[in-house]
């Protein structure tokens, strides 16, 4: 980890109080070049976290509030007839940004959701037969309310799978909440955000993460975890190879953030609930909660 990343983490911690672990996980997710899904009740700081992440990483940031009448064109952009040039000109939608905050993604209708998800997978958008590449890097930070809330369209499993990690913030601790209440307005703090990283530093970090060593014993462990999800009768299906690739890259990013050039089982366990939690479906009961991932970790021996 470079000093500028340490500074970035410090800044994030000064905005989102008492959640260092979630901040670190979110950062690991972005370093692993994955999209992030924040799932929690309204008002616990999801949007603030997304905003702060974009600001701190020095990335261009757009925010879309998803509603039930949001159309794909609202997101991607539209071609509009321009009288002066007598042509249709494409007006870029908010998706053309480095960090897109898709707030309350599960309130949008499926059609709009899939437009976004296509962009997330392909890193490009096709409108009127013309393909428009998205900027580099491109991250989606989506937030969603838990699905038992009224008026939501739950994301299907295949689309959940596009998100590298799902995180929950949870209520802050008593001290953190007191500091929050006593301190200055969060909107002011966000306004004072200064970027801690350059695009070049971000790219270097992503290269460095790819150099983090994975010992055979650690790969054994990851495979044992996958085997446990696949053989367990509790889950409808186990983790996919794509999920394991994601687990490996987030594990590397976490190890790098821990100042190590090799990954250890502790790293795997730290990121596993975030990577696997939304991909595991309990048989007959829908999505697994994070405790299931913890139980799985407790049941698999570490080679």
């Amino acid at each position: 980890m470079t000093p500028s990343f340490a500074a970035a983490i410090d800044q994030l911690n000064s905005i989102i109080l008492g959640k260092p672990r979630q901040i670190r996980l979110a950062l690991a997710c972005l370093l692993a070049q994955g999209h992030l899904l924040l799932e929690d009740l309204p008002g616990v700081g999801k949007t603030t976290l997304a905003h702060a992440l974009a600001g701190t990483l020095g990335l261009q940031f757009q925010r879309v509030q998803f509603t039930s009448d949001l159309l794909p064109a609202d997101l991607v952009g539209v071609s509009i007839y321009a009288r002066d040039s007598d042509t249709f000109r494409f007006h870029h939608g908010p998706v053309f940004s480095q960090v897109l905050l898709a707030d309350e993604i599960n309130r949008a209708p499926p059609k709009t959701q899939s437009a976004l998800l296509e962009a997330m997978e392909e890193y490009q958008v096709t409108v009127d037969g013309k393909t428009h590449p998205l900027p580099e890097p491109f991250f989606v930070i989506a937030t969603q309310n838990p699905q038992y809330q009224i008026g939501t369209f739950p994301l299907p499993e295949s689309q959940l799978d596009r998100f590298l990690m799902r995180l929950e913030l949870g209520y802050p601790s008593v001290q953190a909440e007191r500091a929050l209440l006593a301190g200055e307005d969060r909107r002011d703090t966000l306004a004072h955000l200064k970027p801690c990283l350059t695009a070049a530093e971000m790219q270097q970090a992503q290269q460095a993460i790819k150099q983090v060593k994975l010992a055979p014993a650690l790969l054994d462990y990851i495979q044992a975890l996958a085997a446990a999800t696949r053989s367990s009768e509790r889950f409808s299906y186990g983790l996919s190879p794509r999920a394991l690739l994601g687990l490996v890259s987030v594990t590397r990013a976490w190890a790098w953030l821990e100042n190590r050039d090799f990954a250890i089982p502790d790293d795997v366990q730290a990121v596993f609930p975030g990577v696997a939690g939304h991909r595991l479906q309990l048989r007959g009961r829908g999505q697994a909660d994070p405790r299931v991932a913890q139980e799985l970790l407790a049941s698999v021996a570490i080679p």
Partner: peptide, 9 residues
């Protein structure tokens, strides 16, 4: 050690 407890923890 607890079941599944990683070495560092």
């Amino acid at each position: 050690p607890h079941a599944g407890e990683p070495p560092q923890r």
